[in-house]
Amino acid sequence: MEDFDYRLRPAKSIERKMLAESFSRLFIFGKPSSYQYVGFGAIWFNDFILFHKALGFEKMISMEKNKHLQKRFEFNCPLNCIDLKFDHSNIVLPTLKWTTKTVLWLDYVCVLNEEVLRDISLVSSQMSSGSMLIISVNAEPRNYRAKEEDDPQKKMISGLKISVGENKVPNYVKKEADMNGWNTAEICRDIFTNEIEETLKIRNGGIVDSTDKFSYQQLFNFNYNDGAKMATFGGIISQEKDSTLIEKCAFDHFDFYRRGKEPYYINPPLLTFREIHALEKIVHSDKKEAKKIPIDTAQIDEFIKLHRYFPTFALTEI
């Protein structure tokens, strides 16, 4: 179970809405009822509620490794179409039915590690065409520091090598500074993408007809700060014969669509309700109107960029 109430993390909330909007395009591939959604519902099930209500997914699977809190998770489960699986994703994922088209969001709170890569490689080897695979990982450089017993200097590079396996670390990561700032997020994206592509290459070795071969196309590359640097990347796995369907999905129309290394930063400004209401009114007006609101221009621009996804919740005492 995660330690945060995710409803109160605006970047996460924005990211979730952006993902939901993208998922809605998948219906070019098939009806919502033909898809399954798989994720980590935690105790809040926010993504499950949003994706069910906004998109109509009917088959939903939430994985939860804290077996001893089973009763509490069952109590909090908001929809009876959610199937709760009480085990580690490493155990649950191999048992799922992958012939069903899937939206899988592995929203880890941990750093990128071998267990995560094991999940990525397994699902890439099994997912059917038109499925989405997304992961979120902690990309805070200091969280990759090696334990003292493994490296007395507690280097981040040593920690990363231990965490994902030395052969997975890209060649360009040579010195400690290479992991500074958002570099770690980019390194994680490269390792993640490589894992999918390597697996698909092997999978395609067993496919003779070129129109049946699989490929991965990145759609998302989000970076945001939620107390720690977080990164979310993912995209769609499809067969060559479905490439026209992907074009029809027109994912590239979204501002946040990212095909490569360049991330989309989610950096929501901290605003009062009065400010939010004032800003919403002038989103489509000219800049002069905005100047009347006593907020930094950069923050106004950021709000305008994100306003459709901006969280509208309030924390209240009951």
């Binding site: 490493n90 080897s125 070795g205 496919i207």
Partner: peptide, 20 residues
């Protein structure tokens, strides 16, 4: 062998279904 490598992915799936 590409064929073997592709089948090996399925063997890993089978093995992992049995781990638990």
């Amino acid at each position: 062998s590409e064929i073997y490598q592709a089948v090996r992915l399925e063997m890993i799936l089978a093995l992992r279904q049995l781990i638990d």
